[in-house]
Design a protein around this nucleic acid. Sequence first.
DNA 1: CAAAACGTCTTC
DNA 2: GAAGACGTTTTG
Length: 185
Amino acid sequence: QLDCCHCSYLAITPPPPHPPPSMADTLDMSGSSSPEQQRANRILIGSRAEGDSMGCVTDFLPLLGCSWFSLNPGLFALTAGGGGFLTGGGGSMGMAGVGEGVEGLRGESSSPGGVGGAGRRKRKRCGECVPCRRMGNCEECSACRNRKTGHQICKYRKCEQLKKKAAAGLEKMVFPSGAAFPWLQ
DNA sequence: CAAAACGTCTTC
DNA sequence: GAAGACGTTTTG
Ligand SMILES: [Zn+2]
Ligand SMILES: [Zn+2]
């Protein structure tokens, strides 16, 4: 699990050599279990640990020029989907964000039995938004009340980012202006 | 293995 | 379409 998002997916070799942090000493954080403490630690250090977005596709994308398109179904789908095609009115297709592109559109590959492309990966709470920082379950919201069967985090603790539908982790590429590739214009 | 909680499917 | 239920994945 050392790959960042799709790096491993693209048969290239982007992972920039991570220089040995060498930030030991005085920082033990042995007993960090509660989400609150985790957050604290992350701030203390340099906020990264496993927070992704360090050497992601977005970074070396410009270096690949156009040939990149042919190798990345993921973004291709996203780009095209921006206006239509493969998006919306799919009928029954559980729109689960275009991440891996067209890998068995509907064909229950196998891994995580569910549906939605090819095994959506669970996202983790950002840990920075207000709800994330909240501590303790309110024990009063609906999520808390029916935790037995609901399996949902307290409503007041639900991460702001997770509330939004996962954008396949490429949302950084779609700029508000609508242009997906400013550098190509 | 158990607890926590995301993603989906189902139901209202 | 929101809320509930369930299956599933993560993590300790
Ligand atoms: Zn609650
Ligand atoms: Zn959050």
